[in-house]
């Protein structure tokens, strides 16, 4: 393999090789496994430099793609469906579209409320809340005293707790409040 070829491969990896030369090079690579290996290495280096690599880079990808292409059976000739079958098929498609529409209406109803949920996990909802000025949040009680706030919380939560839908969790706020630094 000449240096000229290596330069060409490198240029092609960087997408800087003129189109006319690309065709020639690809034709040579198709014949020459050494050139393909070189292409593989340069691509790997390029990807590494750009931090595009997966955790375990797959080796000899070009070789495996080539092998797979060789093993691929030739495409079967397309058979044309008879006209009557076509019309049945389109009817079936129309029917299934109608069914999908009904199901879609129902699932949209069912899933709409969960959309904000996924939006939340991406952060904006909490981001806006935590962006509130810190001094509107309750302060930790001073050492040695229970603040009236604790009193209010504990006392109020007993009333909130006696209310069914809060379930077992009304005291979570007391245990969790400002626990994080």
């Amino acid at each position: 393999m000449t240096d000229r070829l290596k330069e060409q491969i490198s240029a092609m990896v960087d997408d800087e090789l003129p189109v006319a030369e690309q065709e020639l090079l690809v034709a040579r690579m198709a014949r020459d496994p050494e050139l393909r290996a070189c292409w593989g290495r340069y691509t790997l280096i390029s990807d590494a430099l750009r931090q595009h690599l997966p955790d375990r880079p797959s080796q000899a990808l070009a070789e495996r793609v080539m092998a797979a292409v060789v093993d691929e059976p030739a495409l079967a000739p397309v058979r044309r469906a008879p006209v009557w079958l076509k019309s049945v098929a389109s009817l079936a498609v129309a029917a299934s579209v109608a069914v999908v529409a009904v199901i879609a209406v129902q699932t949209v109803n069912q899933t709409t409320p969960s959309i904000p949920d996924s939006a939340m996990t991406q952060g904006p909802a909490y981001a806006t809340r935590s962006a509130q000025p810190v001094d509107t949040e309750w302060k930790l009680p001073a050492r040695g005293t229970a603040t009236p706030l604790d009193d209010y919380l504990v006392n109020h939560n007993e009333y909130a707790a006696s209310n069914g839908v809060q379930g077992m969790l009304p005291y979570v706020r007391i245990v969790g409040y400002h626990n994080s630094p």
Partner: peptide, 22 residues
């Protein structure tokens, strides 16, 4: 209801209320 708050070195005790169903 006993709340143990080690960060403020305090224990707060309140009377508990019976729960009402949903």
């Amino acid at each position: 209801v006993t709340c143990v708050l080690p960060d403020s070195k305090s224990v707060v005790v309140n009377k508990s209320l019976p729960r009402t169903p949903f």
